[in-house]
Design a protein around this nucleic acid. Structure first.
Lengths: 86, 86
DNA sequence: TGATATTTGTACGTATGTATT
DNA sequence: TAATACATACGTACAAATATC
């Protein structure tokens, strides 16, 4: 599955929003919207930007954490995974 | 962490309910309440039995699926993982 | 020192969809 | 046809840690 980094969420289609958002965010990481070891927008921001519930945002992030694309620092933010820091 | 298979959920303590329930269910599996390749009670049943939200039950199950204790068959039920069937 | 804002963690309840029985 | 069971999503609330002022 390939997603458009500039796409929006389709609440009617067969692909659940959390998968769409995971794909969109992954595409944005791949495009370089956010650099390695830098924070992506907060969950609250993504809720506003994509018009989904926070639980949906968190589920999308969980998918990408599982895939090794992002990592979360509690009470700090969610970051783009990069090469190990020396 | 070890949990009492006959314990209940403490909503006040420091251990979040989803972890408590995961521990309790794991203890019940270990004790043999449910046999391998047999279904455990439904999510709705566990909601009633332990007095937590369904999201909490699902989160507990997700932990145990991740640990290889249970597996889920959509629209069928949640099962105790056992040795591979011949 | 204290207060406030931000951010993620957890939990609740409710609703609808889909597949199976 | 109806009931059951899991999948997904919404909104809301409060806690805890961190950052800032």
């Amino acid at each position: 599955m390939d997603f458009d980094p500039d796409g929006s969420i389709d609440h009617a289609g067969p692909v659940p929003p959390y998968r769409q958002l995971a794909g969109i965010l992954a595409a944005r990481v791949g495009r370089g919207d956010w650099q390695p070891n830098r924070a992506i927008p907060s969950e609250a921001h993504l809720v506003q930007e994509y018009g989904v519930a926070r639980a949906t945002v968190r589920r999308s992030i969980a998918v990408l954490v599982d895939q090794g694309v992002l990592f979360v620092v509690p009470q700090r933010g969610t970051y783009v995974k990069g090469p190990a820091l020396p």
